[in-house]
Design a protein around this nucleic acid. Structure first.
Lengths: 158, 158
DNA sequence: TAATTCGGTTGTATCATACAAACATGAGCG
DNA sequence: CGCTCATGTTTGTATGATACAACCGAATTA
């Protein structure tokens, strides 16, 4: 690659282009990795189901809209996700006592357990994948990913 | 792995767990970001269509199987993707002269043009999102993402 | 109280993807 | 050579993830 631009050397533009490239690739490979994390017995948690559980565990029970906003998903998508998760016993829905319209979603013990299992499996997988990385490099990667996500979360919305 | 565990503070395990968390989140946010890159006129390139074009541009024309292996996709998925891309004039298919079974996929000028446009738009978007990052941090992020992807590509396959 | 907004659900559509089966072609072997 | 097996590709079918629009009921507000 590295099509030389006529504007002289621009290391910054190059970094952005590389970030763009690698994020796109990570989307693909990460998807494949996710699929690879499933074992026969316990169905793989959906992309969204997993992050929903993670978020409920981290930030406490909350309603559909809050989840949708946080995960940048449409409300209808979250509704369907939590419906499926309720069917599977991963979350509970209860009417919001303070607002007759809302329903509060909370993880069930089974949901938390499943989430932890998936998380452990994936963490193990990353341990294998990054087996030959130094602790310092792992820390740097974790740090950079965290900062990237925070930046993405704060991006100006449509 | 090294003899991790109860050696007091274990920054390494924490780093892996954080990486796992942030990759999962990046999958979600990156998806949203991708959708946000589309303008009304030109349809957003699919997740796969974009990486297929990128790969064809970088590694030259190749057949369905090679693309599938490289992108960790099922062959049937690639077939359908390239069918759609052919319909849209983004790629050409020609019988492989050296192997009657194969078809060689190559990007069309229109496909390359579209790819470049999407790439530019996304790079610009990342420029906005990372506006307040130092060039050094951007380089570090790019570097870490690249290394992560290389590690994912080399992961032991099923 | 009527109008409006807000939270949630359902209807419908699209895309992304996989697995299995079918099919054609190439390769190796008796 | 002709059979068998592997390989490249496609098609059939299923599932999942997701959005947008339309809708309903409750809350808020003018």
């Amino acid at each position: 690659m590295s099509d030389d631009h006529p504007t002289g050397s621009e290391p910054d533009e190059t970094a952005l282009a590389r970030i763009e490239t690698e994020v796109a690739m990570l989307m693909r490979l990460g998807e494949a990795t996710r699929r690879a994390t499933g074992t026969a017995e316990h169905r793989v948690l959906d992309r969204a189901a997993y992050v929903i559980l993670r978020h409920l565990a981290a930030a406490g029970p909350q309603n559909v809209s809050a989840l949708a906003a946080r995960l940048d998903l449409d409300g209808s998508t979250v509704t369907r996700q939590v419906s499926a998760m309720q069917r599977d016993g991963l979350i509970d829905r209860a009417p919001d006592p303070t607002d007759g319209r809302g329903t509060v979603i909370s993880p069930t013990p089974a949901g938390l357990h499943r989430m932890a299992a998936v998380r452990a499996a994936r963490t193990r997988l990353y341990g294998d994948i990054l087996a030959d990385w130094s602790p310092g490099d792992r820390d740097t990667l974790a740090e950079m990913l965290t900062r990237l996500n925070r930046a993405l979360e704060n991006r100006p919305r449509r």
